[in-house]
Amino acid sequence: MIVRTLEECKNSERRVASETWESVRMLLKDDKMGFSFHITTIFENTETHIHYQNHLESVYCMSGEGEIEVVGGETYPIKPGTLYILDKHDEHYLRAYKDKEMIMACVFNPPITGAETHDENGVYPLID
């Protein structure tokens, strides 16, 4: 059995941050579960370009408000209780509204190692 707390993970190398987001990676590839699990904060009044070409992701909004704009497609509102699934490696922009920092629970398949950050195209590399 694996037992971890969010606070414990925040105070470790499992916390990764950028100018627009912070990801606390509670479950990683080396845990051998076949997926990874993160609690991610999208900072208020920001926009992040993301294109997971090597991973599928499900994201559940626990708090805050914003939107996801699929490149060449629709824009969807995000609020607590919203689940979006990037089942086609959808390239998108993720935005948190002013004064509406979003806290998200995220699942990745294949699992990430914990070292990944977005490259210039919004992609996480596939690390073996």
Rank of each mutant, 00 (worst) to 15 (best):
R15E: 10
D99T: 07
K32L: 13
D87R: 11
M33I: 11
Y124C: 01
A17D: 12
Y124H: 09
H118N: 14
N11H: 10
P77V: 05
M33W: 07
I68S: 05
H118L: 15
K98M: 10
H89C: 09
E120C: 06
T46R: 07
V24C: 11
G72S: 02
N109W: 14
S18T: 15
F43K: 15
I68P: 01
M26N: 05
H89F: 15
S58Y: 11
I78L: 15
E116A: 00
V59H: 02
T40D: 10
E44G: 12
S23H: 05
G81L: 04
P110I: 01
L27R: 01
E8G: 08
E120F: 07
S36L: 01
E120P: 02
N11L: 13
D87N: 14
F108D: 06
H118W: 12
N45H: 09
P110F: 01
E44I: 05
V24Y: 04
L6T: 08
H51V: 00
L94M: 13
C9Y: 06
S36K: 03
L94D: 08
T82S: 08
K88G: 05
H89A: 10
K29F: 00
I85C: 13
G66R: 00
Y93V: 13
Y93H: 15
L86F: 10
T82G: 00
S18G: 14
L27V: 15
K98I: 08
F35K: 00
D128F: 12
H92G: 04
P110H: 00
E8A: 11
E57W: 02
L28V: 10
V3G: 09
K98C: 02
E116G: 01
W21E: 15
V59M: 12
T20R: 12
V71P: 02
G122V: 03
H51K: 12
M26L: 15
I127V: 14
K29R: 12
R95M: 08
H49M: 11
T41P: 04
Q53P: 00
C61A: 08
E69N: 11
N121A: 11
R25D: 02
I50G: 03
Y93I: 14
M1L: 14
V16N: 04
T82W: 04
H55K: 01
I50Q: 11
M26Y: 03
I42R: 06
K32E: 13
G73D: 04
G66E: 01
V70S: 06
E13K: 10
E65P: 06
E47A: 08
C9H: 07
N45W: 03
P111L: 01
F43A: 08
I127E: 10
D99Y: 11
V59G: 10
G114M: 03
G81R: 05
H118D: 14
I127D: 05
T113P: 00
I103G: 02
E74M: 10
T75Y: 07
T48N: 09
P110E: 02
I2A: 07
R4A: 03
G66P: 01
M33D: 07
T48C: 12
C106F: 09
I42G: 03
L94A: 08
I39V: 15
I112D: 00
H92W: 06
P125D: 03
V3E: 14
H118K: 13
P77M: 08
V123S: 11
K79N: 08
T113S: 08
K29N: 09
S12D: 02
Y52N: 09
V107P: 08
P125H: 01
E13W: 03
A105C: 12
E7M: 13
E47I: 13
H51P: 01
N11G: 09
F37M: 08
E69D: 09
